[in-house]
Design a protein around this nucleic acid. Structure first.
Lengths: 121, 121
DNA sequence: AACATAAATGAGAATGATTATCAATATCAC
DNA sequence: GTGATATTGATAATCATTCTCATTTATGTT
């Protein structure tokens, strides 16, 4: 990771929650960094490809990024308070690749997210 | 449902797969309809609010719409041509409810979609 | 039918996130 | 240091989506 990437990923880490590329860019500028918007996007895309960050989509389609705690995993999100639990899903991974094979699909990715109400809500 | 809505939803039905607002608009124009893009969006948003159509997001954030079938199932979608296969996923259903229980979540719903390239593409 | 009023429509502009372009700058091997 | 190469930031371009508004169409009343 080079200097720019450290700055972007560092900002994401400080945020500690799902953040958009735009908001990270603004944050960096506010902190006096000269980082460009394109670099923010480039860094986040690369990090997403390397599974360093998670990507979600808001209802309006805007992408949100978040530092991964662990490797590949999915989320259980409280629809009321936003609490997020990362969950393992090896069973789902297996299922996905089997289904893909059975239907002749290649390069299959999957979107798996769980939504509900946490204990407090 | 008024005339315009019938046209838009009808086009979606004829497509029989996840389609974007833009592609439906082009389809309608090709068929000689004078339907405007704004009307396509308005109709799809309304239909989504009424749970008449399913909404998904492509990787690039574009929204895809599809007439709801009855019953619960998931999709394997070709990211190139849009071909859609409905897949059963009882294994996934079980997994989802177990994870929910283990984390004290109630009323859990899930989003599970597979994307890839079909044989032709 | 004639009229008034409200709702829906389509064309095009505006918005906003993302991506592409490209000259300037930093990095690295030698 | 020198030249080759990769990275960067500013800015323009792109593209889906939303907004605006004049016009059309539906609806209700007499």
């Amino acid at each position: 990771m080079n200097k720019s990437e450290v700055k972007v990923i560092g900002a994401l880490k400080r945020e500690g929650k799902f953040s958009s590329a735009q908001s990270l860019y603004q944050l960096l500028r506010k902190n006096g960094e000269s980082t460009g918007l394109a670099t923010v996007y480039r860094t986040l895309q690369k990090a997403a490809a390397e599974n360093i960050v998670d990507v979600l989509r808001k209802d309006d389609g805007e992408a949100l990024y978040r530092l991964c705690d662990t490797g590949h995993h999915h989320h259980l999100v409280c629809t009321n308070c936003g609490k997020t639990v990362e969950v393992e899903a090896s069973a789902v991974e297996k299922w996905a690749s089997t289904v893909a094979k059975n239907n002749g699909f290649k390069k299959v990715t999957h979107v798996v997210e769980l939504f509900g109400l946490c204990q407090k809500c």
